[in-house]
């Protein structure tokens, strides 16, 4: 297992958000965290990454408790793509190069530059590599953030709404790319998503949160209308088309 989350408890100002969340993620596994707005999906990622300090439970990455790891060591193991990425007066190349920070000792090496070059190439950003990120669209900026997380060479990828600002083609491209990275490099990934169909199409495991607890965890094929209705409070129909599961609201 790369990630083990054990009995995680977190509250905002005594309002419980996560209440005993437990799950684990293996290499090459892509987990989608789903649930209604405000259910604690982003909070869960922040707790895994030690940005938030949970009041109970523990998070282990490669069997190391993140509470005992210095921030730079966490950043060498966990790549994090935040929901909101600020555009800056940095070129895309420099913005991605920042992902090498946790690995740097004395300065940037040729290898660091090669890694950035390769990541930009894989995300088809080479042409934009010298453009300032404050001159980029939301989708391009999102790709830069994903490339930055990749050059951290992490064991675990955490992605908070990675397709939020992307058009349909870019959504498919990016999720396909993440799928490939997870499989080829044997990393684990946890991503939050709003779009159920995207999650069901891409993830190995779907993890539904409700009232701070895991309401369901299983493969997309195991997801049924009853589960979704109990989580979102909305009647839906679940179709299976050529092995793919799809969801549509009733009516």
């Amino acid at each position: 297992m790369i990630l083990n989350v054990a009995g995680l408890i977190f509250s905002y100002n005594s309002h419980p958000v996560l209440d005993g969340v437990t799950f684990s993620v293996s290499p090459k596994e892509l987990v989608a965290v789903l649930g209604p707005n405000g259910v604690g999906k982003t909070t869960l990622l922040r707790c895994i990454n030690a940005i938030h300090r949970p009041s109970g439970g523990a998070v282990f990455v490669d069997a190391r408790d993140v509470r005992t790891m210095p921030p730079a060591a966490i950043a060498r193991s966990v790549g994090y793509v935040a929901q909101r990425n600020e555009p800056t007066r940095l070129t895309a190349f420099d913005a991605v190069l920042m992902g090498r920070r946790p690995h740097l000792r004395w300065g940037v090496t040729h290898r660091d530059l090669e890694i950035v070059d390769a990541a930009l190439q894989q995300l088809r950003l080479t042409e934009l590599s010298m453009r300032y990120t404050d001159q980029m669209s939301g989708g391009e900026l999102q790709k830069v953030a994903i490339a930055r997380a990749l050059v951290q060479e992490p064991r675990l990828l955490l992605l908070d709404e990675p397709t939020a600002s992307l058009d349909l083609k870019n959504q498919v491209d990016i999720l396909g790319f993440i799928r490939n990275v997870v499989t080829e490099h044997a990393v684990a990934a946890v991503m939050t998503l709003h779009d159920l169909n995207t999650a069901l199409r891409t993830a190995d495991t779907c993890l539904f949160l409700k009232d701070g607890k895991i309401a369901f965890a299983g493969s997309p094929q195991q997801v049924d209308a009853e589960i979704i209705e109990s989580v979102y409070g909305l009647p839906v129909e679940v179709y299976c088309n050529g092995g793919r599961v799809m969801v549509a609201p009733h009516g």
Binding site: P71, Y80, A82, R84, E86, R89, P102, A145
Partner: peptide
């Protein structure tokens, strides 16, 4: 300088890169 670059990209991104 590296830390300030990371903070420029947002607090959460910077924290994800190991910046306190």
């Amino acid at each position: 300088a590296w830390d300030y670059n990371a903070i420029d990209a947002g607090d959460e991104t910077a924290q994800g890169l190991g910046v306190r």
